[in-house]
Design a protein around this nucleic acid. Structure first.
Length: 282
DNA sequence: GCGGAATGTAGAT
DNA sequence: TCTACCTTCCGCT
């Protein structure tokens, strides 16, 4: 599930469900027990997301103004799932369970279970800022400065495909958005960053902002333009666990929706790269 | 029911 | 470059 849009959507959803009320926190799995005990019963007052990093801000015990931030990274297969009403008996490996979202005198309105994250820890304000400092601009954040990414890209001999996945260059882009945005702009994934024009980068950045915002809204990744939708082209819709309509991601050896050429795949830095050799020649 | 792959990253080698 | 992390879902038997 998790590219940047998933994390930003989770920040919103957690804020809506739990924000402002005391939250009961526990770690049925046992790997977050002490921290969960320390946060238990404190109000969740803020949520934040930067790239694929999720932050849940709990009011400090002394109301001194500093927050304790639960820093979560889902990694490849972590999940955070919501339920309503009284939570069921825990099953499997729940790293963090949150129960709350209502007046403490009322039965709990919501619960959420975090499973399989690559990271779940408590950070100070300063430590949280440190995580952000190590990340590139995030197309989903208002404070993002695409020039910071451009200054790295425009000086780099590394391929644009590798640069887009480097979270120090751009934060929040994952394997799906990488493949799709390069397709949408006709860019050869192996082109070195420094051979990109500033204009091309500006167009890619603007597109990432629009695509990822749509991803947050719909909670899935759709990247095909209106003229290439299944309805517009009278083709079968894509069926898999991601749900969204895409041009090349995981479509190896299938015909390109635009030109009919076979979509190609290759290994690039331990990730699967997908592209259309005919459409992506720039 | 089982094997494999996956939208990711850290840490060892 | 490789392995661990250890969930979910798909396809195959």
């Amino acid at each position: 599930m998790p590219e940047g849009h998933t994390i930003h959507r989770l920040a919103q959803d957690i804020g809506e469900r739990f924000g402002g009320w005391p939250v009961r926190t526990s770690s049925p799995q046992g790997r977050f027990t002490e921290s969960a005990a320390r946060l238990d019963g404190r109000p969740l007052v803020e949520t934040d997301a930067h790239g694929k990093h999720l932050f849940l801000g709990f009011a400090g015990p002394a109301s001194a103004g500093d927050l304790d931030w639960v820093h979560i990274h889902l990694g490849l297969y972590g999940t955070l799932r919501f339920g309503t009403g009284r939570p069921p008996a825990p099953t499997g490996q729940i790293r963090l369970r949150m129960v709350g979202g209502a007046d403490p005198d009322q039965p709990p309105a919501h619960h959420a279970d975090l499973r399989g994250p690559t990271r779940c820890e408590v950070l100070t304000d300063k430590e949280k800022a440190g995580v952000g400092d190590r990340l590139g601009p995030d197309p989903l954040r208002a404070d993002a400065d695409p020039d910071r990414a451009w200054s790295r890209i425009s000086r780099s001999r590394v391929s644009v495909a590798a640069l887009l996945l480097d979270q120090k260059v751009v934060a929040g882009v994952g394997n799906v958005y990488r493949a799709e945005v390069l397709f949408r702009h006709g860019i050869d994934p192996y082109r070195p960053g420094r051979e990109l024009t500033r204009r091309e980068w500006e167009e890619v950045w603007a597109d990432l902002c629009a695509l990822m915002r749509q991803g947050v809204r719909d909670n899935r990744i759709d990247t095909v333009r209106p003229e290439h939708t299944p309805e517009a082209m009278s083709r079968a819709p894509r069926v898999d666990d991601h749900g969204g309509e895409v041009y090349v991601y995981r479509r190896a050896r299938q015909p390109c929706h635009v030109c009919g050429a076979e979509v190609r795949t290759a290994d690039l830095a331990a990730r699967n790269l997908f592209w259309c050799p005919d459409c992506q020649r720039r």
